[in-house]
């Protein structure tokens, strides 16, 4: 009686031990490394997320090799615009300090389309305090230029008012209200 009770107890304890130990081993096998360091996830995934290659530089990265554009861009009204928005990403142009590709330069009608992405009065959600907008083709008519003109024929895209201001100084013309 007593013996069979002890035997049964031993069997129960042993089986619990085997199940728990087996379960623990099984869990160790299935769980990836670093799982549970910070929580129920793989802590290494954070380091992996931090290692994704950077594709966009900053304007400073571009200005390093393009001093002429830098000089004008920094002074003009377009100084807050990212070079890479119009020209493409840094990673497509430079790798390991070497030029690996040529970024496309927008031409003709593409430029007008690009300008009107921001400067189109028709989109009423743009506030005057934030951005100066123009209506096309009214702007061209007002300025007495051909309707086929592209924006960059008067506005230098990096500093849009640079030559406009210069021209006004030379001709002595003043804009109404100024």
């Amino acid at each position: 009686m007593n013996l069979s009770y002890r035997l049964r107890l031993l069997v129960v304890v042993l089986s619990i031990g085997v199940l728990a130990g087996g379960g623990f081993l099984f869990k160790q096998l299935l769980l990836p490394d670093s799982f549970g360091v910070y929580g129920p996830y793989r802590a290494d995934a954070i380091a992996e997320a931090a290692l994704v290659p950077i594709r966009h530089g900053t304007n400073t990265s571009c200005f390093k090799c393009h001093p002429y554009e830098a000089k004008n861009h920094k002074k003009g009204r377009h100084q807050t615009i990212s070079c890479e928005f119009c020209h493409g990403t840094y990673a497509d142009h430079v790798a390991d300090s070497k030029k690996i590709g040529t970024l496309p330069v927008k031409k003709e009608k593409e430029i007008t389309t690009l300008c009107l992405r921001c400067h189109n009065t028709e989109i009423k959600a743009r506030k005057e305090e934030v951005i100066k907008t123009v209506a096309m083709p009214n702007h061209l008519k007002d300025q007495n230029v051909k309707l086929t003109h592209n924006c960059n024929q008067c506005h230098y895209v990096h500093a849009p008012l640079k030559y406009i201001i210069r021209a006004k100084q030379i001709t002595g013309l003043m804009e109404a209200g100024s």
Binding site: I54, R55, H56, I81, S82, E84, F85, G88, T89, R117, C118, I123, A125, R126, K127, V130, I131
Partner: peptide
Amino acid sequence: TQCIGCGSCCVADKRE
């Protein structure tokens, strides 16, 4: 109040 809907952010995100 500052957003002008130019979509620069969307373009940058797609490229990045």
